[in-house]
Design a protein around this nucleic acid. Structure first.
Length: 673
DNA sequence: GACTTCACG
DNA sequence: ACGTACGTGAAGTCC
């Protein structure tokens, strides 16, 4: 049985749960299927089966819940009786592609043998250019069939619409088909409209079309070892499923295209996100080389070291236990060794054993230091040293991440499989891992280019704070400059400790500072932290005004936006629950800053790629890590590239502060910094 | 699958 | 009197 609850894309909070017009949408059964938590006079609800690691509070829906949940009955393919056609003979394909090329606007979708674009073949193509009418072109029987469609994909007079275009473009590319714009991507469109929600086609079909599509599991079975490949399914069975996908994409386009216009998101969509998706596709496709020999040497060393740490720890504990289990570790530290009578607990009642907690115990027992060391090395081994080589593609011998363009609510990218945005760099051992990211051969080097202090520069520019802008214009060390002002000393008298504290304050400003947060991080009293913050706002009154204005704007409009009009909706901004409201207020401050930085580097990436293509350069853009770009630099292009990258990064947008870019070249990623 | 921890910006 | 710095993804345990 299908409950509409499954299709509420987000966690939500029902304000005043006794209000009938809200609660009537949920049957008792549905209500019981949600996990509930009382938060003052509000109830937090979330689907119990939701995929984990959601944000702390998520978005409360308040009024908009009515829009989201309304369709309790979903139409299916049986209800609508659409006109879906199978195209399979060579003659049919040739006739059909003529029809396609006469269209102005066409949705397409590829059916593939798998989810990895470089390892998958194309089984069929689905097209739709009119609601309720779609075509499934089976092409796996004859490999030449795909070529027939080249004329369509290369036609720049046709608007091509897809849901997650990056994937389809990548699969076509790996099957030697080039696809050109103009493009529309319904997944990205929805990401710009509702950045903090989910953008899967099924969810969107439910919410915007009141339609329940045929599930992929109907075709290939449930996830697991028995799941079939699309290759095993006959074309006439795939037909309805594939054609329906194209049909839905077309209908979503009809909803989202005007919505993008209405919300003034056209420039962000057409000038930034859509071109970026192609840049990302090329970066993913390129991949980066990994020095597997150095990693396997390092792994052997780590293995030995971890073994020794383990036996030292067991020596201290006098009993064997699983160090990887926080539960067992807590038992050893706080019951067996009784290191802290008032040990902090997690929200589920277990002892906290995270790094911050352990550091405070380090002076009480030698075991603690060993555990911290063990934790660090185990992390490096399991998450990186042993995991990365397994992800190297057999075809290309390189590591191909997937950049997720519609995940981060602020507009940032994220990276999976592997995540190349959290490769270690801070510790000595961690550096060994970054060192294993290398150029493709001796004719190439790694070029790393990163924005210096981009988020602080953005807040300086947006707030118009003169003293901070001056500091950046004059290239003065920003943390020392802040320290001099906050601690009211001459610049030359700033101590290391003052600078350290000021650096924390600067980070705090970007995150929406609290006295508690600062005191925790600096290990000082709350009162002292409050005094520092008060001094800061006294010295930087424009920053204070700017922060307040962001919160006020959010309260009035329900969202905040970046320099390129990327919105983040903050439904909790007027919540009567103080912690929830505080969270939204900090988002109101942070989102425009983090999001504007994301806008800027995205523009830089597009312009860099455009110019590299124009100049026919052999160097390749490989990675993006929020404020940094990583290239495989063709050595002969060193001078051209340094100039080109610097120019396009610092010149991506015009701000009241200069955007400084630091660049480095080496044969590996570590030394390029 | 929830929870905890920790890697990065 | 609350719980608290922003944004991510992955690995391990334990139910």
């Amino acid at each position: 049985m299908d409950s509409p609850i499954e299709f509420i894309p987000e966690e939500f909070i029902i304000k005043q749960p006794n209000k009938p017009e809200v609660l009537e949408l949920l049957s008792e059964l549905e209500f019981n299927r949600l996990s509930k938590r009382l938060l003052g006079d509000e109830v937090e609800l979330k689907p119990t089966s939701s995929s984990g690691q959601m944000s702390l509070f998520g978005g409360s829906v308040g009024e908009s819940i009515k829009e989201e949940v309304q369709p309790v009955e979903y139409k299916t393919i049986q209800d609508l009786n659409p006109n879906y056609t199978l195209i399979s003979t060579e003659l049919e394909h040739k006739e059909f592609v003529k029809i396609l090329c006469n269209q102005k606007t066409v949705c397409f979708d590829t059916e593939t043998s798998g989810l990895n674009p470089r390892e998958s073949s194309i089984i069929g193509l689905a097209f739709c250019f009119k609601k309720g009418e779609a075509y499934y072109c089976s092409i796996s029987e004859n490999p030449n069939t795909l070529n027939i469609y080249q004329s369509f994909f290369e036609d720049s007079s046709i608007l091509k619409i897809a849901h997650n275009l990056k994937f389809d473009a990548a699969v076509l590319k790996s099957n030697k088909v080039n696809v050109v714009g103009p493009f529309f991507d319904t997944m990205i469109a929805h990401y710009l409209l509702k950045p903090d929600q989910r953008h899967g086609m099924d969810v969107l079909a439910n919410n915007y079309l009141s339609y329940k599509p045929i599930s992929i599991e109907t075709l290939i079975g449930k996830k697991g070892k028995n799941q079939k490949s699309m290759l095993e399914i006959p074309a006439d069975i795939i037909k309805d499923y594939a054609a329906e996908d194209a049909d839905i994409t077309f209908q979503l386009y009809q909803v989202f295209e005007p919505a993008i216009k209405k919300e003034k998101l056209e420039s962000l969509f057409y000038d930034i996100e859509i071109p970026l998706s192609i840049v990302l596709m090329e970066m993913e496709n390129e991949g980066i080389c990994l020095d597997t020999k150095s990693l396997s040497d390092f792994s052997i060393m780590l293995e030995e070291s971890i073994k020794n740490l383990k036996s030292t720890i067991y020596g201290f504990s006098e009993v064997d236990f699983n160090i990887d289990s926080p539960k067992q570790l807590g038992d050893i530290l706080f019951n067996h060794l009784a290191l802290d009578e008032k040990a902090k607990k997690t929200k589920t009642g277990q002892y906290k054993t995270d790094e911050q907690t352990l550091l405070k115990l380090a002076s009480k027992h030698q075991i603690v230091k060993e555990i911290l060391e063990y934790r660090q090395q185990k992390k490096l081994q399991s998450t990186y040293v042993d995991a990365l080589p397994k992800l190297i593609s057999a075809q290309t011998n390189r590591l191909h991440t997937t950049f997720m363009q519609t995940v981060a609510a602020t507009g940032r990218l994220s990276s999976t499989n592997p995540n190349i945005q959290n490769i270690p760099i801070k510790t000595e051992m961690g550096k060994e891992i970054r060192k294993a990211f290398i150029s493709r051969n001796k004719d190439y080097s790694i070029l790393a280019a990163d924005y210096s202090q981009i988020e602080l520069r953005i807040i300086a520019a947006l707030s118009g704070d003169k003293s901070m802008i001056d500091a950046f214009k004059n290239n003065i060390d920003i943390h020392s400059s802040t320290a001099a002002k906050v601690f009211k000393v001459d610049f030359k008298d700033v101590t290391q400790d003052m600078r350290r504290k000021a650096k924390m304050v600067n980070f705090g400003i970007i995150y929406g500072i609290t006295a508690f947060g600062l005191s925790q991080r600096l290990g000082i009293k709350r009162g002292e932290a409050k005094e520092i913050i008060d001094n800061y706002f006294e010295q930087f009154p424009d920053i204070k005004t700017y922060m307040d204005s962001m919160v006020d704007f959010a309260r009035e409009n329900g969202y905040v936006e970046t320099i390129k009009n990327r919105k983040r909706h903050l439904k909790d901004i007027n919540s009567r629950n103080a912690p929830i409201r505080g969270f939204a207020e900090r988002n109101a401050i942070n989102a425009p800053i983090q999001g504007s930085a994301a806008d800027i580097i995205k523009i830089a990436m597009i312009n860099i790629r455009k110019e590299m293509q124009l100049r026919n350069l052999k160097s390749k853009l490989l990675l993006q890590v929020h404020d940094e770009l990583v290239f495989d630099l063709f050595n002969e292009e060193k001078d051209v590239m340094l100039e080109l990258v610097e120019k396009n990064m610092s010149g991506a947008v015009n701000l009241k502060v200069p955007l400084n870019v630091e660049m480095g070249i080496a044969d590996n990623w570590l030394d390029a910094h």
